[in-house]
């Protein structure tokens, strides 16, 4: 492990954030962590101090509450951190756009697509969607499609189905 990554893990541990290591070869990122909404800003601040940049902020509509997914990475070593934060009862989550200015647009986009409110956001207006479509929330699932958060956690399917000879003719 890269020394800076080790430092990151131990520093975060000191602040009571436990990163769970993932298999990069399978999942394309190194650490994952679930957090409560009230600790999000503290975590983001820690990562900024460790010179991690924000890759994206995205939403995920699951039961029981919408999750906001953050991915952070480093410029000088392979180290990706995925952070999941569930929104509270009012569909709200604190903003990190004052810590990571790049989050500003990502949060506005997530607000467009999922209707998540980012409390403290300096400019909460639609970014991608038109202002009249503010109630559209296109990425929300219908009840039939909605899944439990726990049902979407990583499970490795060990056995792939047999290779089909005709597959490449499709």
């Amino acid at each position: 492990m890269h020394p800076a990554t080790e430092k990151l893990v131990s520093d975060l541990k000191g602040k009571n954030f436990t990163l769970a290591a993932c298999d990069y070869a399978e999942r394309g990122y190194h650490f994952e962590i679930d957090l409560a909404a009230d600790r999000l800003r503290e975590f983001a601040q820690c990562l900024l101090e460790q010179e991690m940049y924000l890759v994206f902020v995205g939403g995920l509509h699951v039961e029981p509450a919408i999750e906001v997914i953050y991915q952070f990475a480093s410029y000088d070593r392979p180290c990706r951190v995925v952070l999941r934060v569930a929104v509270d009862n009012n569909n709200a989550i604190p903003t990190i756009s004052d810590i990571y200015q790049g989050a500003n647009w990502h949060e506005r986009e997530t607000r467009d697509f999922f209707g998540v409110t980012f409390t403290g956001h300096p400019n909460p207006v639609p970014l991608i969607l038109a202002e009249e479509d503010v109630d559209l929330k296109p990425l929300l699932k219908t009840d039939a499609n909605l899944k439990e958060s726990a049902a979407l956690r990583w499970v490795r399917v060990e056995e792939q189905p047999e290779t089909d000879e005709k597959a490449d003719k499709d």
């Binding site: 399978e26 999942r27 394309g28 990122y29 997914i69 991915q71 990706r80 995925v82 049902a151 979407l152 956690r153 990583w154 499970v155 490795r156 399917v157 792939q160 189905p161 047999e162 290779t163 089909d164 005709k166 597959a167 499709d170």
Partner: peptide, 12 residues
Amino acid sequence: PKKLKMPVGDSS
């Protein structure tokens, strides 16, 4: 395979 079966979970 003709029909890909993806494992459950997230990846990047």
